[in-house]
Write a protein that binds this DNA or RNA. Structure first.
Lengths: 137, 137, 137, 137
DNA sequence: TTTT
DNA sequence: TTTT
């Protein structure tokens, strides 16, 4: 069934990556997406949306992006639940990122935010695709 | 910032509508969206995605749709939090439905699922738009 | 870069499939998507959107869908151009369908429109994924 | 019916704005969206997607964006046709932009590309929404 | 008839 | 428990 999410927002924290027991790279991150309208107090609020990304895209995200970096996410919504520390079931709604676009980087490696899906580990300027449509589940 | 969600799935329960203290109609509902792939046990799982819709669209949803009805949702992701019954903060991620398409109805009023944003309270066959881009917040 | 299209509409013709010289299945089709609003004459118009789909999804589409069938499309916009019969360059904008959902079928095979990405060649009721993320270009 | 397009790409030309006979501002523009994969020659190609935007959003686009500027577009696909100069009917598929996000500007006014829907004609830093959900058709 |  |  159709399930599609597209977001542009800023990383609330510098992303960290970990590996599953099977050695698969994964990164959980949150992006702040400012709302297009102001609230009663004339302030623009944001939505803080939890995302997860796997494999090479997870590695690139952790390597090149920072707190505050602007990224685009194309993916799907997924829900899961697990037993919380208090024994109660916790329900999670998050975005499974299938493709991430680096729209701007902050400091780290001095990369320049080319508006392309780029992992600028070398200086060719030739962007590298970080899409990952071969997810491990 | 860009924030777009498109879903097609089935209502997990017959939707109910309520009114805010200001008299604005609102309906919270969940749709089950089947995943396009099977898990390790060869089963297809679903994501259960919480949604909210306001005003006329909320009224139409409650009036014409039922548990199991297939609908399309076009909207945006929003997050909010409130104090839970145990005093702890509860965080919610849900889809704010800006437009709902009735793809199929179950029984209730014998409506026929025309694949249009329809509220068939009369028999003209002329569909009625239930989009709502003038939300109360 | 982000490029995402999601559509729900009806096939304007029974889809036909062909094979490229390399033996890859491909189907071009058009879906009519009704607009959510009426024009000055109080009529609801439609947009007629050209799409292309490859491989197994193309085969399933041709085998199970008919003129008038309601489908969902998840894909991306692409442009191409070729030399027209009058020697002038023709520019085409179309949707490359990466995933198609059968929302309803018309007659052909008497299939029932389960609201799932289904290719009901057998009667198990177990839907088959027709997504195709390994496109030949 | 569902009809949603989300794009991020670069303006192929500095956008120009005009007014309809009724005095409504409108701007037609093309964005180049790089494909996520390379072709046989190892080159990354782009899709050149025609868009149209109305009213205040059209004015802001023409005022603040330039050739090469990176923008995000949230809108819908529409088709129309008209009689060409040779008397033949010309069919057009384009994106009706309902909301545009300025992701980066080039020179003109020295604006800084804040990643928000911003029309920085004053220096408050408070972004201005350029969404336009009240289109004249 | 195109962007970086 | 948050970004600019």
């Amino acid at each position: 069934m159709l399930n599609r999410v597209v977001l542009v927002g800023r990383l609330t924290k510098t992303p960290e990556m970990r590996y599953t027991p099977n050695g698969v790279a994964v990164s959980n991150f949150t992006i702040a997406v400012n709302r297009p309208f102001s609230n009663n107090q004339g302030e623009r609020e944001a939505d803080f949306i939890n995302c997860v990304v796997w494999r090479k895209a997870a590695e690139n995200l952790a390597q090149y992006m920072n707190k505050g970096s602007l990224i685009g996410v194309d993916g799907r919504l997924q829900t899961r639940n697990f037993e919380g520390q208090d024994g109660k079931r916790v329900f999670v709604t998050e975005v499974l990122a299938e493709s991430i676009q680096f729209l701007e980087s902050k400091s780290k490696n001095n990369s320049s935010g080319s508006g392309q899906e780029t992992a600028p580990q070398e200086n060719t300027g030739e962007p590298i695709d970080i899409s990952d449509d071969d997810l491990p589940f």
